[in-house]
Write a protein that binds this DNA or RNA. Sequence first.
DNA 1: TATTGTTATACTCTATAACTATA
DNA 2: TATAGTTATAGAGTATAACAATA
Lengths: 173, 173
Amino acid sequence: MTVSRTAEKSSEKPADAGKGRKDAGEVQTEALQLGELSEQLGYVLKRAQLKVFENFLRCMASLQLTPAQFSVLLLVEKNPGRNQTEIASTLGILRPNFVAMLDNLESRDLCARIRSTNDRRSHILVLTDKGKAVLARAKKLVATKHEARLNDLLGQANREALIGMLSKIANEF
Amino acid sequence: MTVSRTAEKSSEKPADAGKGRKDAGEVQTEALQLGELSEQLGYVLKRAQLKVFENFLRCMASLQLTPAQFSVLLLVEKNPGRNQTEIASTLGILRPNFVAMLDNLESRDLCARIRSTNDRRSHILVLTDKGKAVLARAKKLVATKHEARLNDLLGQANREALIGMLSKIANEF
DNA sequence: TATTGTTATACTCTATAACTATA
DNA sequence: TATAGTTATAGAGTATAACAATA
């Protein structure tokens, strides 16, 4: 739809552009009408996604993990012995783009590539001890700060319903 | 989180990487376990958003309108007489990035910039007749193809609940 | 001095082609 | 010949600084 922002940064606090009130006595500066936009699934979905990612980044600031990196660590932990192609494609990451991502995680000693003995073309992915420790801390931060925030906002039942509907859209739309 | 894709294109059909079954008789290729990932709000939100945008693009193929362009047309129609800064900031678009976007819409004769007489620095935005006509057709396509699809999938009540929760996240998270 | 629209620019994501080393 | 990982590259989207015209 539109929307932007890279975590904190500056600029554009949307949906509240015109102050709604004039500060001095010049021209009128009424807030804009969103109209049908606020009912557009894509629009509200995109905005919500950006907010959630921003919050995720803030919660993870101490561990310096992006949502994408977190998803890789989670998937590697849950599926040990898989190669780059398998992990990347499951996450919707293209193999070429996965290389730099892994270089980063490997340089931080969070995961490692191991040349497979069966097929020497493949790199098996594993978490290092540090990677496991960081992921454990990350999970706690996500649970106590990030997901907890969502529970406060929507309530447990609604949160589950939301995840369910989004999954359905992701899988069947 | 991860995920990609630009509408149709090729590559990466995630969440079903390993076929789950071997085709010949080589090695095992079981489907990967998503594990906690499928309960992560950010992950499922991002995936759903990509699917919805893809579907939007497909529904709008005949009009060649992106979600972002559609949102601009909607907002200009609903708020005639506003300038670039106001429209852009409401949508979370940075002014510099809004220039090329408007150049595109203007070159297609969908909207026009009008130098304001009050403040000659400002460009007032308006829809052209063609812009109004295209937007009307776009709304119909969205309603009958795009949003209708969501109703089929979730049902009217759930769809409204979903929009409501996403709005709440977008505004209060 | 401040603001509007603009240009230039940079950085991140995403996408495709093609190379290498294995198979 | 096909596949895994990689390189190079290109295109969107998003971000900041700075300039000209105007206020």
